[in-house]
């Protein structure tokens, strides 16, 4: 790629960075610890909610939060990325939903959260990963859940955790696994 149009290498870098951001969302939604961990360099720093420390320690906390959730969804959008050689800075939007147990009432609730990740990316050994992340909250909402609709559907039609969700079989099928 060294003799390629520099505009195209930046475009390819942005695409690779976008897919790290999407993989983070999948890691949370499917409670896929390997996917989540693969987004961060070993020394990446994290500053999100009440947590400040190493990103890989944040992954431990995130897994403890998402594993028991009945449902979890993260949508990533609005990626504004600036690439400078092997470093990049990025702002993206997230929207998240957790169906969780309210610790005070013991009842289920829907928790919605919208915000942004301010990230520094670094390319090391050819791979773009997050080198530092700050999470900012713009929107939060808590509502009593409704059991109309999707929960009456067969279990295999409802999103599941790693490795049971159908996305893993689908990806394996392309690699000749199934």
């Amino acid at each position: 790629m060294s003799d390629a149009d520099p505009r195209l290498t930046v475009l390819a870098d942005k695409q690779e960075i976008a897919e790290v951001l999407y993989r983070y969302a999948r890691g949370c939604d499917r409670a896929d610890e390997a996917a989540l961990r693969s987004c961060f360099h070993a020394d990446s720093r994290h500053n999100h909610g009440l947590y400040e420390g190493l990103s890989h320690d944040f992954v431990d906390r995130a897994m403890a939060i998402v594993r028991p959730l009945k449902a979890c969804k993260h949508i990533i959008s609005n990626m504004l990325i600036t690439v400078d050689g092997d470093a990049a800075v990025s702002e993206c939007h997230y929207w998240a939903h957790h169906r969780r147990i309210n610790e005070q009432t013991g009842r289920e609730e829907d928790y919605y959260s919208g915000g942004r990740y301010l990230d520094r990316f670094e390319r090391r050994d050819g791979a773009w990963k997050i080198a530092s992340r700050t999470g900012i909250s713009d929107f939060e909402r808590y509502d009593a859940p409704s059991d109309r609709g999707m929960w009456q559907m067969p279990a295999e039609k409802i999103g599941a955790k790693h490795p049971d969700d159908p996305v893993y079989a689908l990806e394996a099928s392309l690699r000749g696994g199934k």
Binding site: N47, L80, V89, E91, L118, D119, T134, S137
Partner: peptide, 24 residues
């Protein structure tokens, strides 16, 4: 909730990170 809540320009962390060279 403190400083990790979204704000307007120039108070949002986006702009302070910019000064530190962390975010565009």
């Amino acid at each position: 909730r403190g400083r990790l809540v979204g704000a307007r320009k120039p108070d949002d962390l986006l702009y302070r990170h910019r000064q530190l060279g962390i975010v565009p």
